[in-house]
Design a protein around this nucleic acid. Structure first.
Lengths: 251, 251
DNA sequence: AAATGACGTTTCTTATTAGGAAATATAGTC
DNA sequence: GACTATATTTCCTAATAAGAAACGTCATTT
């Protein structure tokens, strides 16, 4: 975790603490936080008090439990809105969701991972929603592969050198050869399929967003695998490619 | 800004910087940030570098511009989900939105202000969306007044002692007497009206969420004033009160 | 093409802040 | 009413932060 000569030791500690709170199933207390981030209780306490003063955490109860503060709702919303892509694409993606009834997700790549910027929720009662701001691997997700397929050979090599292709399901492409073949297919047909490669039971079709040879994001349609068949997929591909064109034209 | 004996000077500075970025219309650079938060450029630079390393900001360009990081999308989503209220209430509020076609907002009170936790967006093409995580005054908003009406006399006094009733529109209730009268009406009828008291052109009906005498939040229906009339309001009140009952029963 | 100006970045030294062991307080439990 | 688990305070030393000034870099002007 420690990097070169980074200023702001307290900030790095605060980040660890926030991440731990963020990743905890149930809101943790001081002792639990202190143990997990491996910083003494007094120090963690002092940081938590300042974080609370700033609105970055809120706490509850006498044996205190810490939660992420509501200010992050504001910051998160503003982070999302800072991407022109979101403002431009979401109207089209909402329309695509209405046409398909399935979840439609919008993302960009940051540090070799796909980040979910926004989404249109499925209107079906059975569905999987991705968590806003959550990340996925490029190699396993439809959106990620769609984006990766527009990288240069050098960039792809670079990515693969730095990334272990761990299986996430039994369908995950885990060899360089399989993935490169798939990327080549994607480049040809213009869309990517994730047939339960990223998450059990979930089928996705991903589309790249490219203008002037520059990839600036991607989107995907995501559905429980039991709801898809060849005809439906063909229709989603058609609708998705139209949507892609509309978004790119506006960009 | 400086409080008692708060540990973590860097955190407080980081918070100032994040707030400044958050409140800027266009993404600011180092010089602009340094001037506005009144901290020297080297210090701001070092903090920004650490914030960027943590994913709290991202930057663009050679003459750098700073934006809030995408990690806040995740944190914000998790902050929202940490409220059981959101999980319980939103299905009912989505239904209420479908019935009214207007924006339906869910909030709680934090430090004397209403915080917007989540919302169902209006389906009308002309509409005002509140910003997620944004805050409103209690005295001027329908949701705020609905909540305030369930405070004890002492709590209300306390609130009024600490709050200047500044007019936000020409209809804002700015005298203690008018507000107390209104709160008394709200207590009787069970809902609050904001007739362009909080924002130009916007009419809201607010409902408190109370269980066992304990106020735990509120919600509101919000519409452009030109779309409301007496009959519509009567219908929204009926639908809102039903929704309120459903949410409270589940809580 | 040289000069200017507007930023971002680095260096370096002193004053300030952070860190954690140990003691203490406080609440829940048996 | 003693016990246990957690939160909080104290206090001193080691580590960190802050900013003035100098420097680098890029874009624009003359």
């Amino acid at each position: 975790m420690a990097e070169k000569h980074l200023y702001g030791a307290v900030l790095l500690k605060a980040k660890e603490i926030l991440d731990f709170i963020s990743n905890s199933e149930t809101a943790p207390g001081l002792k639990e936080i202190s143990e997990h981030v491996d910083i003494s209780k007094p120090t963690v306490l002092k940081i938590l008090q300042t974080l609370e003063y700033c609105g970055f955490v809120r706490s509850d109860g006498k044996i205190k439990q810490y939660y992420l503060g509501t200010i992050f709702i504001k910051y998160g919303n503003e982070s999302t809105q800072s991407f022109n892509l979101v403002k431009i694409a979401m109207p089209f993606l909402n329309k695509l969701r209405d046409e398909t009834t399935e979840a439609v997700n919008l993302g960009i790549v940051e540090k070799d991972r796909v980040v979910l910027l926004d989404r249109a929720k499925s209107t079906n009662s059975i569905h999987f929603d991705l968590e806003l701001g959550g990340t996925m691997h490029m190699y396993s997700s439809a959106m990620g592969k769609a984006i990766l397929s527009h990288y240069s050979d050098e960039q792809i090599d670079n990515y693969l050198d730095q990334t272990a292709l761990k299986p996430l399901t039994k369908n995950t492409l885990v060899t360089r050869k399989d993935l490169l073949n798939n990327l080549s297919e994607i480049r040809n047909c213009g869309y990517a399929i994730d047939d339960i490669e990223n998450q059990e039971g979930v089928y996705c079709i991903g589309f790249p967003l490219v203008k002037n040879g520059q990839i600036f994001g991607g989107f995907s349609i995501s559905a429980p695998v039991f709801r898809v068949d060849e005809q439906i997929i063909a229709n989603w591909v058609k609708l998705g490619l139209e949507t892609e064109k509309n978004i790119v034209d506006q960009f």
